[in-house]
Design a protein around this nucleic acid. Structure first.
Lengths: 337, 337
DNA sequence: GTGAAAGCGCTAACAA
DNA sequence: TTGTTAGCGCTTTCAC
């Protein structure tokens, strides 16, 4: 608690504090003799430079602020892993703040983080919140916005191509023989919603085989939302000989499968189900969920990489980055004989 | 980027920087007139105090370091939620570092965090690592150690009573009519392992009804580990008319249930399964898992509360804290007729 | 009630 | 190669 400072080291080593600073930072040549004395003193005193003081003078906190909706959401945790691990490679630490979706809280966090002199901000959100984004962009600090539900070309971000991913998944279903397929969406008509793109990809793939596309308006993106619509979905499926259901997100698919489990509908024997995301639960749940893998870890990693680049080059690149997605084939989708 | 400082505010308001400081901190009375001029200047310039500079002089970073094994583990994310949310109430931010179980990395993080002048450290670990703990305790900084697999009275921590929880769950199983019950453990003979306590509680409850206790040595705490032992567990269960299996952790139970699903063993009709933890997956998986709820959020909340108290009172309480657990009754355990 | 000045621990000119 | 010194932006005596 009685911390040892650079002065103590200097005194003990019999040199000036500048010399100590030089050996710590390797910023200028120091004679072998002096260096050794300093190193010895550092060792003996257990000296650790005070990063706060350093930050003050260098104006570099080596801190990145990360504002998330909820670290308890596994895909967000995965993104944060990517951010943290890559950040650490460049000697950046992250300050984590959870907003639980409150815009006002997010705004407050931005202010707090700026006060802490963070050198960049990653905002991981689940709503369509231009307002906070604009506020951050006004601050003129390296910034990346991560949102798997909404996208806008004007905001620096990292994502996968939703349309292509959805197209690929649908195509896979048609290859399994499905022709009457339902897509469960939510919010597809909202501004910036990526659902619009996903529906487009879905329709396109189905049109190629003259299949029948059914769009079902869901009630949200969570497991409960998937469960809640189970009855109606099943009814619609039966009435239209639908054999496969493509859900906009894994959670919805899991909710739906749970409804099916509870009501003795067999997946994939009676009906095939697939999701989007490949969140953790997708490979744990039984039957395992066929889905589109969104590379969350990589998304986080690329985001932080972009911020660090902006810090170094003092200029944030405008071009958004698209990462490849992948179809993960598991048991929840079966062949049509 | 061209940040406005207290000097700018002072100049604009036509007062000294001390006065500005006083109105910001409400640390000393300031005349109404002066205060208003300062407030106006702050408003117009959009001034935000530089927390780094503040930290340097006050020697309070308002930062708490949190070292976790992996933020991707949902129960850890839940603990971190508790830590963060309560920390925030006291205006503390958290710096998150993931060690992925490497002791050397953890040690490095401790050093980094000390450099950043954190005012306390929470270490969330899954191994038995005295070494790192001792290192932190030597630093003489408020510290709490969270570990659901190991416990030691000498280390400041927060947990539930493992023996009582295990006793309660076993008792519930006996109330359902089970008499031949298997407890799947791992590492129970290792130093500080809480498994020893859990086995004790299990045996005690079963002894009270003259039931037969079977202990199975598992292969780990993860889902895969539960899956791997499925075949042997099932064999042993059949040979001994075992009707219920109590797993040391939810993950093991889920792995086991997945094995059962894949091999057409019905839970709970053919056999009952329960777990320990109530991690997220327990309520999502079908059948839903009966389990002991460990209050992860609260554990994190109490941990940070304890640290903040230590910061304020300059003295960390020695007594460890036990939180109540709860039996969550779901579908994976059935009655014996 | 107010301002001048010292200083938190450090880096980075500048001189020597 | 080294030491002296001036800050970084802020809080906090201390004197008025």
């Amino acid at each position: 608690m009685v911390s040892v400072t650079i002065k103590d080291v200097a005194k003990k080593a019999g040199v000036s504090i500048s010399t100590v600073s030089r050996v710590i930072n390797k910023s200028k040549p120091v004679s072998l003799e002096a260096r050794q004395k300093v190193l010895k003193a550092i060792e003996e005193l257990g000296y650790k430079p005070n990063e706060v003081a350093r930050s003050l003078v260098t104006r570099k906190s080596r801190l990145i602020g990360v504002i998330v909706t909820d670290i308890g959401h596994s895909y967000i945790a995965e993104m944060v892993r990517g951010i943290e691990e890559i950040g650490r490679m460049y000697r950046y630490d992250i300050i984590l703040s959870s907003s639980y979706g409150h815009k006002e809280t997010e705004k407050k966090f931005v202010q707090l983080l700026m006060g802490k002199q963070v050198q960049g901000i990653v905002l991981i959100s689940e709503d369509n919140n231009d307002e906070v984004v604009e506020e951050i962009m006004d601050m003129d600090i390296p910034f990346v916005y991560l949102n798997k539900y909404y996208s806008s070309a004007k905001i620096p971000s990292v994502y996968i191509s939703s349309e292509r991913s959805s197209y690929n998944m649908t195509k896979y279903l048609t290859e399994l023989g499905h022709r009457n397929i339902m897509y469960v969406t939510y919010n597809k008509d909202e501004k910036y919603s990526v659902e619009k793109l996903k529906v487009d990809g879905f329709n396109k793939a189905l049109a190629e085989v003259n299949g029948n596309a059914y769009i079902f308006q869901g009630e949200g993106f969570q497991i409960e939302d998937g469960y809640k619509i189970g009855e109606r979905v099943y009814k619609m499926a039966k009435e239209n000989s639908i054999t496969a259901i493509f859900c906009c997100h894994d959670e919805v698919a899991i909710g739906l499968m749970s409804y099916f489990y509870d009501n003795n509908v067999k997946v994939p024997e009676d009906i095939s189900v697939c999701g989007f995301g490949d969140s953790k639960i997708a490979s744990i749940y039984r039957p395992r969920l066929t889905t589109v893998r969104e590379p969350y870890y990589d998304i986080g990693a690329v985001a932080i990489r972009r911020i660090i680049k902006a810090v170094d080059e003092k200029e944030i690149e405008k071009e958004n980055i698209y990462l490849p997605s992948q179809i993960i084939k598991r048991e929840s989708c079966g062949k049509i004989r």
